[in-house]
Lab assay of single mutants.
Amino acid sequence: STHNELEKNRRAHLRLCLERLKVLIPLGPDCTRHTTLGLLNKAKAHIKKLE
């Protein structure tokens, strides 16, 4: 159905954006896999440090 396709595309776009963010944020050497929340929290902390 159309709704399923739209949802699939939305999730794919979100995944792509999170992958791009992961490249930009210093995550530390001990981190190989992150939850979305963990990645967003690290991004928030990094932005605050830059301010």
Rank of each mutant, 00 (worst) to 15 (best):
residue 7 E to Y: 08
residue 47 I to D: 01
residue 21 L to Q: 04
residue 50 L to W: 12
residue 19 E to A: 08
residue 49 K to Q: 02
residue 39 L to R: 00
residue 24 L to T: 04
residue 41 N to T: 03
residue 13 H to S: 10
residue 20 R to M: 00
residue 33 R to S: 05
residue 30 D to F: 12
residue 35 T to I: 10
residue 23 V to Y: 10
residue 48 K to D: 02
residue 24 L to M: 06
residue 18 L to N: 00
residue 19 E to Q: 08
residue 3 H to M: 13
residue 16 L to S: 14
residue 17 C to N: 04
residue 17 C to M: 13
residue 6 L to Y: 07
residue 18 L to H: 00
residue 35 T to Q: 09
residue 40 L to K: 01
residue 15 R to L: 05
residue 6 L to C: 09
residue 25 I to A: 03
residue 30 D to N: 14
residue 41 N to C: 07
residue 1 S to D: 04
residue 41 N to S: 10
residue 7 E to M: 09
residue 43 A to C: 09
residue 28 G to P: 11
residue 41 N to E: 09
residue 31 C to I: 13
residue 6 L to R: 14
residue 1 S to C: 08
residue 32 T to I: 13
residue 23 V to N: 15
residue 46 H to D: 00
residue 43 A to M: 12
residue 49 K to S: 07
residue 27 L to D: 04
residue 37 L to S: 12
residue 36 T to W: 14
residue 1 S to E: 04
residue 35 T to W: 14
residue 34 H to N: 12
residue 16 L to I: 09
residue 11 R to D: 08
residue 11 R to M: 07
residue 3 H to T: 11
residue 36 T to R: 08
residue 42 K to Y: 02
residue 40 L to E: 01
residue 42 K to G: 05
residue 10 R to G: 06
residue 2 T to E: 09
residue 7 E to W: 11
residue 8 K to G: 11
residue 28 G to A: 07
residue 28 G to N: 14
residue 31 C to E: 08
residue 33 R to K: 10
residue 15 R to F: 07
residue 7 E to K: 12
residue 18 L to F: 11
residue 10 R to K: 15
residue 2 T to R: 02
residue 2 T to A: 06
residue 7 E to H: 06
residue 48 K to G: 04
residue 13 H to D: 03
residue 19 E to L: 01
residue 50 L to G: 06
residue 51 E to H: 15
residue 18 L to S: 04
residue 42 K to M: 04
residue 3 H to E: 11
residue 50 L to F: 14
residue 16 L to G: 14
residue 35 T to C: 12
residue 41 N to D: 06
residue 30 D to W: 12
residue 36 T to F: 13
residue 33 R to G: 07
residue 48 K to W: 06
residue 43 A to V: 11
residue 23 V to R: 15
residue 21 L to F: 05
residue 23 V to D: 09
residue 2 T to G: 02
residue 5 E to R: 07
residue 38 G to T: 10
residue 39 L to Y: 03
residue 1 S to V: 07
residue 29 P to Y: 14
residue 27 L to Q: 09
residue 19 E to F: 02
residue 34 H to R: 14
residue 4 N to Y: 03
residue 15 R to M: 04
residue 7 E to L: 10
residue 41 N to H: 12
residue 6 L to F: 08
residue 50 L to S: 04
residue 22 K to F: 01
residue 51 E to D: 08
residue 17 C to A: 08
residue 8 K to L: 08
residue 40 L to W: 15
residue 10 R to E: 01
residue 26 P to C: 09
residue 39 L to C: 03
residue 18 L to W: 14
residue 37 L to V: 11
residue 36 T to I: 11
residue 38 G to E: 08
residue 18 L to P: 03
residue 1 S to Y: 05
residue 16 L to K: 12
residue 45 A to R: 09
residue 27 L to A: 11
residue 31 C to R: 14
residue 49 K to D: 00
residue 40 L to D: 00
residue 4 N to V: 05
residue 1 S to F: 10
residue 22 K to H: 02
residue 42 K to L: 02
residue 33 R to V: 06
residue 41 N to W: 01
residue 24 L to F: 07
residue 28 G to F: 12
residue 33 R to N: 05
residue 7 E to A: 07
residue 48 K to H: 01
residue 43 A to I: 08
residue 39 L to E: 03
residue 38 G to N: 07
residue 4 N to P: 07
residue 3 H to Q: 11
residue 33 R to F: 09
residue 47 I to S: 02
residue 2 T to W: 01
residue 5 E to W: 05
residue 37 L to N: 06
residue 22 K to D: 01
residue 26 P to Y: 02
residue 29 P to S: 15
residue 39 L to G: 01
residue 2 T to V: 02
residue 39 L to K: 00
residue 48 K to R: 07
residue 47 I to N: 02
residue 4 N to A: 07
residue 11 R to V: 04
residue 40 L to T: 02
residue 12 A to L: 02
residue 33 R to Q: 10
residue 50 L to H: 07
residue 47 I to M: 07
residue 35 T to A: 14
residue 46 H to L: 11
residue 35 T to F: 14
residue 22 K to P: 01
residue 33 R to I: 02
residue 12 A to C: 05
residue 23 V to L: 13
residue 30 D to S: 15
residue 36 T to N: 09
residue 28 G to S: 11
residue 24 L to G: 04
residue 22 K to R: 09
residue 15 R to W: 07
residue 21 L to S: 00
residue 13 H to T: 06
residue 32 T to N: 05
residue 12 A to D: 05
residue 25 I to S: 05
residue 20 R to W: 00
residue 24 L to R: 12
residue 6 L to G: 14
residue 46 H to T: 13
residue 11 R to T: 06
residue 26 P to K: 15
residue 12 A to Y: 00
residue 1 S to T: 03
residue 49 K to L: 05
residue 28 G to T: 14
residue 21 L to P: 00
residue 39 L to Q: 00
residue 25 I to H: 01
residue 43 A to H: 01
residue 50 L to A: 03
residue 26 P to Q: 13
residue 37 L to D: 05
residue 24 L to A: 06
residue 15 R to G: 05
residue 23 V to S: 15
residue 10 R to Y: 09
residue 27 L to H: 09
residue 26 P to M: 12
residue 43 A to E: 03
residue 51 E to N: 15
residue 5 E to G: 07
residue 47 I to R: 01
residue 5 E to F: 04
residue 33 R to A: 06
residue 51 E to F: 15
residue 27 L to T: 12
residue 17 C to F: 12
residue 38 G to R: 11
residue 18 L to Q: 00
residue 34 H to Y: 05
residue 37 L to F: 13
residue 29 P to H: 14
residue 35 T to P: 10
residue 25 I to M: 08
residue 26 P to N: 12
residue 33 R to H: 07
residue 9 N to D: 09
residue 11 R to A: 03
residue 35 T to S: 12
residue 33 R to C: 05
residue 13 H to K: 14
residue 8 K to Y: 03
residue 48 K to A: 02
residue 14 L to G: 07
residue 5 E to V: 06
residue 1 S to P: 05
residue 12 A to E: 05
residue 45 A to G: 05
residue 11 R to S: 05
residue 8 K to W: 05
residue 26 P to R: 14
residue 23 V to I: 08
residue 26 P to W: 04
residue 6 L to Q: 14
residue 24 L to N: 01
residue 23 V to F: 08
residue 36 T to A: 13
residue 13 H to P: 12
residue 16 L to Y: 07
residue 18 L to T: 01
residue 51 E to K: 15
residue 29 P to R: 14
residue 30 D to A: 13
residue 47 I to Q: 00
residue 7 E to R: 09
residue 27 L to F: 11
residue 37 L to K: 12
residue 24 L to W: 14
residue 40 L to Y: 03
residue 26 P to T: 15
residue 1 S to A: 03
residue 29 P to V: 15
residue 34 H to G: 13
residue 11 R to L: 10
residue 29 P to T: 14
residue 25 I to V: 10
residue 25 I to C: 12
residue 38 G to Y: 03
residue 50 L to D: 05
residue 8 K to V: 06
residue 46 H to R: 11
residue 27 L to Y: 05
residue 28 G to H: 09
residue 45 A to E: 09
residue 47 I to P: 00
residue 41 N to F: 02
residue 10 R to A: 12
residue 26 P to F: 03
residue 34 H to E: 07
residue 16 L to V: 11
residue 20 R to I: 00
residue 1 S to H: 07
residue 21 L to V: 02
residue 29 P to C: 14
residue 31 C to S: 14
residue 46 H to G: 13
residue 15 R to P: 08
residue 23 V to Q: 13
residue 35 T to M: 15
residue 19 E to T: 04
residue 23 V to A: 15
residue 1 S to M: 01
residue 45 A to T: 11
residue 48 K to F: 10
residue 39 L to I: 10
residue 31 C to V: 13
residue 48 K to I: 06
residue 32 T to W: 12
residue 14 L to I: 12
residue 7 E to P: 13
residue 39 L to D: 00
residue 6 L to N: 06
residue 31 C to L: 11
residue 51 E to Q: 08
residue 34 H to D: 04
residue 45 A to L: 10
residue 49 K to C: 02
residue 26 P to A: 15
residue 37 L to A: 11
residue 34 H to T: 10
residue 13 H to L: 12
residue 41 N to A: 08
residue 24 L to C: 11
residue 46 H to V: 13
